[in-house]
Every structure is written in C-alpha cells, then in structure tokens.
Design a protein around this nucleic acid. Structure first.
Lengths: 206, 206
DNA sequence: AGCTTAAAGCTATAGCGATTAGCTTTGGCG
DNA sequence: CGCCAAAGCTAATCGCTATAGCTTTAAGCT
C-alpha cells in the first residue's frame, strides 16, 4: 500500500480544516483519519492523542488569528485601529468557526505551554498597542485589553453559535458594539488608587 | 431494592449541580447515575437521552439566570440598573459555571423550543428595560442589548474558563468594562438610515 | 542492484460511554 | 390481597479512543 505521506503539520492542518466544517467539538480521530486517507490507529503515528491534536490545532489557530489581527491593526491607531482590529477578529471567527472555538481552550500545564504563552504574549502586545491609541497605560491598558477581548469574544461566540436570531441586522449591531467601545474608551474614567502608569507592568495573559 | 424516588425534575437538578462541579462538558450519564444512586440505564426512565438532559439543564439554567437578572435590575434604571444587572450576571456565571456553560447551547428545533423561546423573550424584555434607561428604542435597543449581552457573556466565559491570567485584578477590570459600556451607551451615536423607534419591533432572540 | 531498518500503515483488541432490549421488583390502588 | 405500570437491573450493541504487535514501504548505504 502506498504511503499517504503524512506529517504532523499535515494532520494538524487537516484537523483544523475539518473542525471548521463540522465544529471543533465534533472532531474525531475516525473522521480525520478518513479525511487524510488512513485508518484511525495510523493517526497515532503523528499525534499523541486527540487531546494533543486539539492542543496543536488551538496553538496554530492562536498563531493565525494573532497574525491576522496584527496585520489588520498595522499602521493604524485610535478608533481606526480598533475598528480594523475588531472587524478582522469577527471575520476570522466567522470564517474559521472550528479554529476559533479551539482558541478558547485554557492553556494547559504541558510542554508547549511555553510556545502557547509566547503566542499569547505577542497577541497581547498588539492589543496593548491598539488601546494605547486611547492614551491608556499600565493597569488601565490591561483593563482596556480585557474589555476589548471580552466584547469581541462574546460577540464572535454568540454569532458563530447562531445565538443571534436575526442575521440581517448583525452587521449593524457589530458596528454599534465597536462604536460603543470606542466611545467608552474615549471617555475619561476616574483613576483608581493603585493604578500604575508603567508600560506593561504585568506579564502575559489578558 | 428500594426505589430511589426519582423524578424528571430531580434528575435535571442533580445534573445541573453536577455540571457545576465537574463542568458541563464532563457531564456523563454514568456520573449522574452514580450521583443519584442508580445504575446508568435507569436514568433513561427519566430523561430521553444525554442530549435531552443537556437541553433540560440549559432551559432551567436560562430560567434561573433570567430570574436573577430580573430581580437584580428591578426598581433601578440607567447606569445603576446596568451595574446591578452586570454584577448579577457575572456572579451567577461564577457561582454556576456548569449551568452557565449550558445556557450557551443554541436553541434546538424541538418541542421545548417553544418554552425555550418564551424564557428567552422574558430575559430579553428585562434587557430592553435596562437599556431603555439610556433612551434607546427600537432597533437601537436591539443593538444595545446585543452589545450588553456580548460583553457580559465574553467576560463571563473568559473568566470562568480561567482565561484571565491574574485573578487579583479581575474585579477592577469588570468595573472598567461596565463603566466603558455605560459611557459608550450614553454617548450619542449617529442614527443609521433604517433605524426605527418602535418599541420592540422584533421578536425573540437578542 | 541489493540490504538494512526506521517510519508509516494495518489488523486485532481492550475499554469506556451512550443507548436499547427485555426481565424483575416495587408499591399504589381497587 | 392481588394487579400492573413505573422504576430498576442485567446483558448486549455500537461508536470512539487508545495500545499492541505485525507488515510493508522506501530512504540511505554499500
């Protein structure tokens, strides 16, 4: 029998593509094996387990989304940057529902934890740069990054899960969301005792 | 052998409690059976399937959360109402992670779809009332409700999944989120052609 | 060209979780 | 005090993860 010519990267990529089609939760070793033209147990020559496969897909997805977001925000600042960043986020989530779902998995305490953290940090840097356009620094920037992430993540999750009933108006609702965030971030908020103005005083993980 | 004295409601309640302890995704018929002191197949005398059990838990959870939110916002308006509503949302999600995860499941096209829709509509009404305090009506109210839901849902999901790295500051970040939303909703935004000012022109599902 | 050998596949198998079939026991009710 | 539907149970099936152990491919070396 001729070799299928698989490699770890091929399997992970196929898994990501399949997850986008049938949903991250519906991904099984059997379906993926069939997809790449091999019997189920053969997949274990390339990935350690379903769990490991899912982690690899998640890591790759985080990398891809991070790149897309960085490119979208490059060369822009303030509201323009936020809008571009937000649009790119939403589009990517809609275009890659399986991968997007994968990015939510909490980081494990495993080996590639390191790489995971690195990727997360890079994404975080981009987010910091975006909110920096509103004059936010230090812990305020952290808060703002969490605000941005929460809002975009919530919207993306609900939309891609079909949580909104009326597809027709979702575009405008998203614009409204982004405008609301921009307006809110532009409004001066009272400083809270304990706030710092240091740049990035806090490590990874928004 | 003495009867365990189960009823559909008992099983669903036990399932919800178990889901809160071990996670909605980790809920199995076997674990639930053990919990209620019965062998696995016996559960099928009370619930049609795991899928049905999950839907029942989701429905009950939506009802509970909706009640909590309605109570929290009762008698308040404007920013005060939003803060109370948001705090109640976050607290409930943190206190009932399994149930909260259950509420995300997309509504099915089944029999209790009806009941599901009714519960969703009641919750929507409360949300409309909350944003009405900002003078938003019609499609703008729909957009605002989606904004609120997305932001709160995103934050709750990330926090309860351990997505934020630094527990110490999460309280303040949440305040910042709510303040940002309030500030954003208070800022006048240009009307978009096609907006209506009718009250609730659109049915269920935010 | 032919040999060696690690990698890549495969079949067989174990084990777990959902679900169904069919038998048994319980306990409310006439 | 016996009837019978509901509630439990055991046995068995099916799909999915994972492991063990055998076979074949093909790359590299001579």
């Amino acid at each position: 029998m001729p070799r299928a010519g698989l490699a770890q990267a091929t399997v992970v990529a196929a898994g990501a593509a399949l997850a986008d089609e049938i949903g991250f939760a519906g991904l099984t070793m059997g379906l993926l094996a069939e997809r790449v033209g091999v019997k189920t147990p053969s997949l274990y020559k390339h990935v350690a387990s379903l769990e490991a496969l899912q982690r690899s897909i998640a890591l790759q997805a985080k990398r891809e989304l991070g790149d897309v977001l960085a490119r979208a925000a490059a060369g822009k600042s303030g509201p323009t940057a936020v809008r571009a960043y937000a649009d790119a986020w939403r589009r990517w989530a809609l275009d890659h529902p399986g991968r997007y779902a994968a990015t939510v998995r909490a980081p494990t305490t495993d080996a590639d934890d390191e790489e995971d953290r690195r990727v997360a940090n890079e994404s975080l840097q981009v987010m910091y740069d975006v909110v920096a356009g509103f004059g936010l620094r230090g812990t305020r920037a952290l808060d703002a990054a969490r605000v941005l992430r929460s809002a975009l993540h919530g919207f993306a999750t609900l939309e891609s899960a079909g949580g909104f009933g009326l597809p027709r108006d979702v575009d405008r609702s998203f614009s409204f969301l982004v405008d609301t965030l921009i307006a809110g971030l532009q409004t001066d908020q009272p400083a809270i005792p304990g706030d710092t103005d240091d740049d990035h005083p806090i490590a990874h993980e928004v």
